[in-house]
């Protein structure tokens, strides 16, 4: 049995991949890294931890795939309607990655998808508080189980990676060895959150985003149901 992991190359998604390799000892772990315009060196930044995982669990256990999502990302940004200022948030959303990951899982008959979502990253809409449940329902409709195995152990991520021999030192974050994919809109994203939370308050800001994400995921659901001639399950 195989498993796919949304892999940014950072500590959280590396631990998610390690847990996948341990949970599915006879299967392969497919590491999916998003790439589009505005991303810096997606392949190179994920190289180090990909190599570390291969060293510990065996090279044959991991398959790496750089997923090009430019067309889908652009489509999701350009076809959205409604509040213009809210739509800016789609520029840095991971909706297209989830769409492409679902397509990959369906093509390769993978039924489990992991990511490295952690609770303290609550300002990022793709993480647990906004995206978590929506993404889980989205994937479940196509028979894919979406899980965030690092969510409950987020405080010990670095120690767990070190204990497994994946990282060479117990503290990696913020060091020169800490690689992860960076994208051009990250500062625009910070400014957008600053503005949106100040204007609406965090609770309203979250609700507005959740509605937008739900609507966009519905569009993706219809798209993939048509492509794969699948009957969606009730969320």
């Amino acid at each position: 049995m195989h498993c796919a992991v949304l892999f940014s190359g950072g500590s959280d998604s590396t631990l998610a991949a390690a847990l996948a390799a341990e949970r599915f000892p006879s299967g392969q772990v497919h590491l999916l890294t998003m790439n589009r315009r505005g991303f810096y060196r997606a392949e190179k930044e994920t190289e180090a931890n990909f190599a570390n995982l291969q060293r510990v669990y065996g090279a044959h256990r991991f398959v790496r795939k750089i997923v090009e999502v430019e067309a889908l990302h652009r489509e999701l940004c350009e076809t959205a309607r409604g509040d213009r200022l809210l739509r800016v948030s789609l520029s840095f959303a991971k909706l297209s990655l989830h769409g492409a990951a679902l397509e990959y899982c369906l093509e390769h008959k993978i039924t489990t998808l992991y990511d490295g979502a952690v609770p303290y990253m609550y300002l990022y809409p793709d993480q647990a508080r906004i995206g978590g449940r929506l993404y889980r329902n989205f994937h479940r409709r196509f028979g894919v189980s979406y899980e965030s195995p690092v969510n409950g152990i987020s405080r010990d991520v670095e120690a767990l990676l070190f204990a497994r021999g994946i990282t060479p030192q117990p503290e990696m974050r913020g060091t020169s060895r800490d690689h992860q994919v960076f994208y051009a809109e990250q500062i625009l994203f910070a400014l957008w959150i600053r503005y949106s939370v100040a204007r609406h308050g965090y609770r309203k800001h979250r609700e507005r985003l959740r509605d937008l994400y739900a609507e966009r995921l519905e569009v993706l659901c219809e798209k993939y149901a048509k492509i794969h001639h699948l009957a969606q399950r009730t969320p």
């Binding site: 315009r37 505005g38 652009r74 940004c77 350009e78 213009r84 200022l85 739509r87 800016v88 520029s91 051009a184 809109e185 500062i187 625009l188 400014l191 957008w192 503005y195 949106s196």
Partner: peptide, 18 residues
Amino acid sequence: AVTVASWLPYGARLCFAY
């Protein structure tokens, strides 16, 4: 910054982000 970004089309917004 967010208001300017909201006026721009997809490609120009990316340039604006740079």
